[in-house]
Design a protein around this nucleic acid. Sequence first.
DNA 1: TATTAAAGTGAACACCGTTAGCAAATTAAT
DNA 2: ATTAATTTGCTAACGGTGTTCACTTTAATA
Lengths: 256, 256
Amino acid sequence: MTSNTAGGPSRRERMRAETIAEIKASARSQLLQHGPSGISLRAIARDVGVTAAALYRYFDSLDALLIELCCDLYDELIAETRAAMDASPPEAHLERMKAWVWAFRDWAVGNRREFELMISYPEGNAAISMDGRALEHAPENLDPVTRKSLEHSQMCGREMAAFYRKTESGEIQAAGPLELPEISDGLKAELVDKCSMFIVGEPIPLSWIFTFTSAWVRVFGLVVMEAFGNLPVQENVDEFYKTQILAMMRDFGIEG
Amino acid sequence: MTSNTAGGPSRRERMRAETIAEIKASARSQLLQHGPSGISLRAIARDVGVTAAALYRYFDSLDALLIELCCDLYDELIAETRAAMDASPPEAHLERMKAWVWAFRDWAVGNRREFELMISYPEGNAAISMDGRALEHAPENLDPVTRKSLEHSQMCGREMAAFYRKTESGEIQAAGPLELPEISDGLKAELVDKCSMFIVGEPIPLSWIFTFTSAWVRVFGLVVMEAFGNLPVQENVDEFYKTQILAMMRDFGIEG
DNA sequence: TATTAAAGTGAACACCGTTAGCAAATTAAT
DNA sequence: ATTAATTTGCTAACGGTGTTCACTTTAATA
């Protein structure tokens, strides 16, 4: 006769949620210690104080657990990035985008194993198995991890769009992207019609989406290289990031 | 009495080399089919027609096998990249650098699982475990995989250096890199003293090594994103690469 | 040909993910 | 309050993994 008249989660549901959290915490701890492939279901069970078979009451398989863990990690990344952005006022679009980059980098480098799991998920990347056509599908049809990854990049994309709109309306004075290289018609169409729709949520001019996409590749390259230890610069990494950000801003026609 | 007077490899050595090649071939086939973590020592043994224990006469462990496989894959990548570069004459530095990028991309995308293994090697990246200070050590002290990776990027770096030297001597007319962003003294020193030494083999001016490093990050980002299915552009990928290459060339002060 | 080194075997060990069947505990319904 | 239903956990087992050890077979050497 557990009173559940208030509509809140029942005692059992609370217990279950707590166990699930414990399982995930143990998985993450093992991820930290032994890397993505060192996560053992049986070790988790030992850790939680339960039999390995019991874990199947909570997750369909180890892979399913890892996928959920991935999603949680993306949620954490997204939350921290959002918090970093919100430290600047809504009008400070440039500061917010910079904050996005720094937060992304800090999280990825501060949680290398987690980041490793996220981008190499799940032992045979879903994006690979769908032949790299993630963006052709509606976000609802994407696998959950790819959806979260998209959500993360959209945070920055929407900020850039807001900045663009204010330059368009004259509210902000900025030259905007200049000197685009030659771009084929097919690529133009894809950038404007698909990329801008998915990453920004609304169509924006070619020059903006192209410059943003280029910058996104650079940031991704920086973060992956640093997290995987392939960055050419090893000592003055912060300064290197700063110069890269400056260079990207210059591509957007922004000085300082 | 196998005559080994010619000094060539003995019959036994030939047999051994052949078996090793067979083992690696089987490992790679499994890599292709089931991904990096799907490589099973016992399956390899079954494939080669031998007991699992027998493989330990050839490799200290599965990990050691994977490391050697990684090195072989890098050798293959390096060979193909070199061949692609050598399709252009030695003086055509720009063409050769472009060929390097395309060959890198083609190989990585055409051998995604292999590339995945190479950059996530070895289940707890050596570069990570050495705290990301790969470049502080002499190449001889690097783990073999990181050394190969360095060798690969040096191919492009040396080409760029040759190009720089000819612009310096006036043999080639080019404006050279322009409009560097603000760079701190510490980063300047690291770029010129360490990065240029390791990637190029000789000190080159700040503007060149900085621009090269920036381009290297962009190329790496492109290739990793495409191989992992995270590239924003999905249909006109070739064209996207071309525009990125054009943008990078512009950074070097080169038009066309 | 006798000796020696290499290659291969089979059994065992300690793990792993996963499934099936069964017992205990908790919730819901009568 | 008793019964029925559901959830949770257990044990045991299956087939798989990397690795080691003692032993035999094979091949090259002296």
